[in-house]
């Protein structure tokens, strides 16, 4: 059974009081659940949150499924999100994605067998002047080539 840490529960309580309506706390609380649940939001954690926040499960599930930053299935420890929008594509983002998927032997949006990496194609991340670029977990990596991106990821995998 999923449960938030005491700190997490306090966070939820604070968020519930922070905005004009309780409902506004759904997004921040889903972030918190995702953080404490290895990077994704499971159905049981939605039920848990529903009870904790005293809000209908359907409302939470609507939010969960609407926003792309919430992962509905497990993701790798490194969540590599390569921008595949227009400026990045013009400068080789798709070739870069293909290269990374091949190198790390994983299909786009799927988690690698060892659970260490997921490579996703995402929409514009607002860093078009440094295309192609990718986001790994919370951080941006810019002006990439297939080689430089591979090196960054390998470095992080080894560092783990």
């Amino acid at each position: 059974m999923f449960k938030l840490s005491d700190e997490g529960i306090n966070f939820v309580k604070k968020e519930l009081a922070r905005y004009e309506t309780k409902r506004s706390a759904i997004i921040p609380c889903l972030y918190r659940v995702q953080k404490e649940n290895d990077g994704w939001v499971s159905p049981e954690s939605v039920s848990y949150l529903s009870e904790l926040m005293e809000l209908p499960e359907a409302w939470i599930n609507e939010v969960l499924n609407f926003y792309t930053m919430f992962n509905k299935k497990p993701v790798g420890k490194l969540h590599v999100q390569v921008c595949n929008n227009i400026s990045c594509c013009m400068l080789g983002a798709r070739e870069l994605t293909d290269h990374l998927c091949k190198t790390f032997n994983v299909k786009p949006e799927e988690i690698s067998e060892d659970g260490k990496i997921t490579i996703s194609k995402v929409e514009c991340l607002g860093s078009c002047d440094t295309a192609p670029m990718m986001q790994i977990n919370d951080d941006y990596h810019e002006n990439l080539t297939p080689g430089s991106a591979e090196k960054i990821i390998k470095g992080m995998l080894n560092g783990n």
Binding site: G126, C128, D129
Partner: peptide, 11 residues
């Protein structure tokens, strides 16, 4: 919520 592809001025 800067999201229009190509835009990064607000960031």
């Amino acid at each position: 919520d800067e999201g229009e592809p190509g835009t990064f001025k607000d960031r």
